[in-house]
Design a protein around this nucleic acid. Structure first.
Lengths: 219, 219
DNA sequence: GGAATTTAATGCGAAATGGTACAAAAAAGT
DNA sequence: ACTTTTTTGTACCATTTCGCATTAAATTCC
């Protein structure tokens, strides 16, 4: 009894306009909700320490249903990670796309990042990529390529920010957008790690402020 | 048959001058060597995915011996982590203590870091703190305090570097040593993560170079 | 109402896991 | 030679783990 048993009220998420009248017994769960619960668990405990029983309890689906809906444990892990990346990308896309001064854009990105990393009922959940996916990346090529993709995507988004800023005169001509972008990504990574170690938000914000100051005043 | 069965040739490590004639059956393993093997495993697979059988096979000790020598799995994990931190600290201590120009010190630190993160027979081993300890930190207060300690230790060491550099005129008066130190730590963290995702050394070195350029030319 | 279809629920089973009991082995002391 | 002490090696136990086979339930189509 984890999920609410509402069925009629349209779709829970975006791309499910009208259910086209399924044939057999109706599902007792909403896949998107279940995937979100699985994501939370994987993010908290990692791949190995999360059992199918845990996932079953959290999603409200019994194991065979889980298996039928998402495949085996690794499939579910990968789908969870995809979902995490989609969510994270969506929550940052607007800011990266917006036309705002460099400092403001950075501050907003980092605020979002802190929200993501620090949320969680049983302690800060940290970043999926940093905390568990990177570990799996060594031995699993598929996860590895997702991690690399995520990392370079962030680098590129920051890179565009800094290039923009340089063009607008917010940064001197000699500034190196790629290097600054890597430092901006590194700041994301360092606060993800520290958040997981329960460093309080105030300290993380101080670290972010220092980083933003340096990045906005580069050479 | 993992460890070599040499007994007489003095001590393998530092603080074991002369064995004072132990009473019972002699050990078939050298604790330091065994701990190193355990460390490698934990670093590669994390806490949950490393089984006592794996540890037993890698160390050449059977489970009861393991248990007797190091305690239960968590004890062994913590001792492995302590060993890792001791080793890492030792390999960087000289550089942090040396009187050298800022850029040179940074470059040497990062070279050591890359050596540590990229070594490993079955893929890059990454950083213990970043890859596995931080994950455990949320739920285990002891591990958490070790992680926080390690992070702040690195911050402080970098902080001293930058403060020194400012006093010597390598950095302008307005430079903020603490902020720069956090960025230097963040660079350590980002290369640890990327190394784990098998990003090739060349790319990591490029990231480091860019970071060093920015940090040495701060405001 | 009955067949077809899709899902839920129960539960099995083989393997792995963390931990330990217990006897045999190897050394030192007497 | 015999006891004492310490470690090894085998085997075991209770639990957990993942995956699936099978049966029961709920819905649509005819």
């Amino acid at each position: 009894m984890v999920q609410k048993s509402k069925r009629p009220p349209s779709a829970a998420r975006s791309a499910t306009p009208v259910e086209p009248k399924r044939r057999g017994r109706p599902r007792a769960y909403e896949p998107d909700v279940a995937l979100g619960k699985a994501l939370d668990l994987f993010r908290r405990d990692g791949f190995a320490a999360t059992s199918l029983d845990d996932l079953s309890a959290a999603t409200g689906m019994n194991r065979p249903s889980l298996y039928g809906a998402f495949g085996d444990k690794r499939d579910l892990y990968i789908k969870s990670y995809q979902r995490y990346r989609d969510d994270a990308r969506a929550s940052m896309a607007d800011i990266f796309r917006a036309e705002a001064p460099l400092r403001e854009r950075l501050e907003r990105i980092y605020r979002i990042a802190l929200d993501i990393y620090l949320s969680g009922e049983s302690g800060p959940r940290g970043c999926f990529t940093v905390m568990t996916a990177a570990s799996e990346a060594v031995s699993d090529p598929d996860i590895r390529s997702m991690v690399v993709e995520g990392l370079t995507e962030l680098d590129k988004a920051f890179g565009i920010c800094f290039r923009h800023a340089r063009e607008r005169g917010e940064l001197p001509e000699g500034a190196d957008p790629a290097a600054l972008a890597h430092l901006a990504s590194a700041t994301i990574h360092t606060i993800a790690i520290r958040a997981r170690a329960r460093v309080p938000r105030g300290e993380l914000e101080a670290i972010v402020k220092g980083a933003v100051d340096v990045l906005c005043a580069a050479k």
